[in-house]
Design a protein around this nucleic acid. Structure first.
Lengths: 342, 342
DNA sequence: CTGTTAGCGCCTTCAG
DNA sequence: CTGAAGGCGCTAACAG
C-alpha cells in the first residue's frame, strides 16, 4: 500500500553512514559532527523524511498522548477547558484523546480501561455526576500513570487537582446578593455528591450565616444540570408563600434556564429577583445582560491542569507530592441598575 | 520505570508455547486449536495482559487514529459534531486527535503537517474562514490518506463531503419569512469564500426571485461569525430608510447576537421582525423562544462523516470514488404567534 | 565523533 | 494446527 515512507535507513544508505548516526542527527544530539549533521538534515529534507512516531514511541515506551475525560464535550465550560488543554499539550508535543463519560460512572470506568490500553502517559479528569466510588482510578495509580482532576474533582486519598475556590466564590456571590438588599435568597444547587457543588452550597450557607439571614431548607433546590431544571426550579420558587428576591445559581446551564423562564414570566432581573451564577468565556455573552457572574475561565483551568500533568509526567514534580492549584475567579457585575434601595 | 507490562512472550513462556501462537490466539485467529486458545485467553486474563497498540500498530503500519480539524472546538456546532465523531470512531476502535485551526489558514496547514507526522489513518476537516487555497490538502492526497470534509467544505477537485443542502435550507427559510408576510428581508451572510455561506446566499436570492421580491444590495450584510456582528448588523439595518421586517441569518452565533440586540431595542420578534436562523442541539434552547430555526444536527453530521471516512480507510469505498452525503435539516417554528396578517 | 549490536512488542510469512 | 525466524522504524548502550 504505502511502503514509500522514507526511513532513517534510506538516508543512511544514500549517505553511506550508519542509521544510528542519522537517528542522532535528527534528534539533534551533540555527539554528531556539525558537518555530517548538516548533510543528514539536508538529505532528510530533500527526501521529505518524517519521523515515525510509532516506532520512536515504542522504543521509548512512551506515547506522548494524554487522555482527557469530561462529562460532555458540548458543555460550554468543558469545550473551552479542552481548548486550553489542547493548546498546552500540543505546544509540548503531546496529543490528546478526548473522551466523554456522558455523566455515566460505567462509561467513565470503561474509558479508563481504554486509556490504559492506549498507554496514555497521563490523564486529566473531570468526574461524572454519577461518580461516587473511585476504584477505577486505582488502575491508573497501580500503573503509575499520573492523573490530575480539574473542576469536578473528588476527595480521593491524595491526588493533584486544579480547581476554583468554590466555597469562596459562592460566598462572594451570595454576599453580593445581600449587598443588593436581597433577603430571601434561593440556591439552585448541583448534585451533592460532587465536591464542587457541596462547597458551593457551604459557601451559600456561610454567607447567610455571616449576615444573620435565616437558612431555609425549602430555598435550596438541588437538581441535575439541565436547562429545564432552571425553569422548573423557578416554578417551585414562585409557588412558595413568600417572595424570593435573589438566586444563587451553582451551574451555568441551569442559570440560563432560570433566566429564560424569569423573562418569560416578565419578572425583572435584577429589580425583582437578582441572580448570580457561574459562567465562562463562551457562554457569558448570552447571559451577560441578565446576571452577575462568577467568571471561571475554562481555557485557563485547562492550561493549568495540563501544565501540572506534564510536570508530573516528566517527573518534575516529585512523586507522591500532590498539589492543589486554585485558579482565580472574579465576580463581574453585568447590570448597572443595582437595587440600592428596596 | 514500568517494565512490569505483560507481553505475549510472558504468556508464551509460562505456557511453554510460542509467542506467535499466543498472538494468533489473542487475535482470534481460526488457526489455533480451541483448547490452546482457551488456555491462552485464561492466562492472559489472569495476568492482566493488555495488547501494546504501539507495537501492534507499528507492525501493521496503521495508527487507528483519525485527525479532526475544526475552526474552534468551543463553537456549539463543532463540539456537537465532535461528539458524533468520537462516538462513531470509538465504536470502530479508532482514536481521534482534535485540532483547532482557530480560523487561520496558516494553522490549518501546520496542523496537517502534524497529523501527517502522527501518521493518522484519515482526516475530517471543516475548513477555516481564511482558507482560500487548498494546497495543503495535496500532502494528504499524495500520501494516500483519505479525508472527508464536513459542513465547511471546499470545491476542491474531487473529494468526499458530508454537508447539508445549504441552498435548499436557505430557500426554505426565506420562503418561511415570506409566508409570514415579510417583504423587506435582510440576509446576515457569512464569509463568501466559504461554499456553505455562498450557497445560503444563493438560496436567499432564489427565494426572493420566486416571489418577485426585489433584491436589494444593502439588505445583505456580510460579516465574520461573531456574536457582536449580530448587533452591529442590526444597527445598520435600523439606519436604513425603510423598515426591515424579516432577517435570514446564515449563522447561529450571529443569530444570537441579533436576537440579543433586538430584545435590547425592545423590538418584538416575530411581530416586528421575524427571524430564521440555523441552530443545532446544543444551542437551540437559548434562541428557541425567539426564532424559527433550521435545525442542523452536529452529532449526526459527525457520525455520518466518520462512517464515510472509516469506509474509505478500510477501502470499502473504492478509491477515486467521491461521495457527497447530504444530511437533512428541518425547519422548526418556535413561535406560535405568526404574523398571519400585517 | 561514529559504527555495532540489540532490542521495544507484535505480527506474519514460511515451514513443518 | 504450531513453531521458527525475521522485521516494522527507531533508539540506546557499548565499543572503538
Amino acid at each position: 500500500m504505502d511502503n514509500n515512507e522514507v526511513t532513517i535507513h534510506d538516508i543512511a544508505n544514500i549517505l553511506e553512514i550508519d542509521s544510528s548516526t542519522v537517528s542522532r542527527a535528527l534528534n539533534n544530539s551533540p555527539r554528531v559532527a556539525k558537518k555530517t549533521k548538516d548533510k543528514i538534515l539536508a538529505k532528510a529534507n530533500e527526501l521529505g523524511y518524517q519521523r515515525n512516531h510509532l516506532a520512536s514511541n515504542l522504543r521509548k515506551s512512551k506515547t506522548f498522548t494524554i487522555g482527557v475525560i469530561v462529562p460532555r464535550i458540548s458543555r460550554h465550560f468543558f469545550s473551552s477547558a479542552i481548548a486550553g488543554i489542547e493548546e498546552t499539550a500540543f505546544k509540548a508535543g503531546y496529543n490528546v484523546i478526548i473522551c466523554q463519560s456522558l455523566e455515566s460512572l460505567e462509561r467513565e470506568q470503561s474509558i479508563i480501561d481504554t486509556l490504559l490500553a492506549n498507554r496514555v502517559d497521563g490523564v486529566l479528569v473531570s468526574i461524572s455526576m454519577e461518580t461516587i466510588n473511585y476504584n477505577h482510578f486505582k488502575g491508573l495509580q497501580q500503573r503509575n500513570i499520573p492523573f490530575v482532576f480539574f473542576d469536578r474533582h473528588c476527595n480521593i486519598s491524595e491526588n493533584s487537582k486544579v480547581v476554583i475556590d468554590d466555597f469562596e466564590a459562592a460566598f462572594t456571590a451570595v454576599e453580593h446578593l445581600i449587598e443588593q438588599k436581597s433577603t430571601e435568597i434561593a440556591h439552585f444547587a448541583g448534585p451533592q455528591n460532587l465536591e464542587i457543588y457541596k462547597n458551593r452550597f457551604k459557601g451559600y450557607k456561610a454567607a447567610l450565616e455571616k449576615y444573620n439571614i435565616p437558612f431555609r431548607e425549602e430555598l435550596v433546590i438541588t437538581s441535575t444540570l439541565m436547562e429545564k431544571d432552571g425553569s422548573e426550579n423557578v416554578k417551585k420558587l414562585l409557588a412558595l408563600p413568600y417572595k424570593v428576591d435573589g438566586i444563587f445559581c451553582a451551574n451555568d446551564v441551569v442559570a440560563i434556564g432560570t433566566i429564560q423562564h424569569l423573562k418569560k414570566m416578565n419578572i425583572k432581573i435584577p429589580e425583582e429577583i437578582a441572580i448570580v451564577g457561574f459562567s465562562n468565556e463562551s457562554i457569558s455573552s448570552v447571559i451577560e445582560p441578565a446576571l452577575t457572574t462568577i467568571n471561571q475561565s475554562g481555557t485557563e483551568i485547562g492550561n493549568v491542569a495540563t501544565k501540572l500533568l506534564l510536570d508530573k509526567i516528566s517527573n518534575k514534580t516529585k512523586k507522591g507530592i500532590h498539589e492543589t492549584i486554585i485558579v482565580k475567579t472574579n465576580l463581574i457585575e453585568r447590570t448597572s441598575s443595582l437595587r440600592t434601595k428596596k
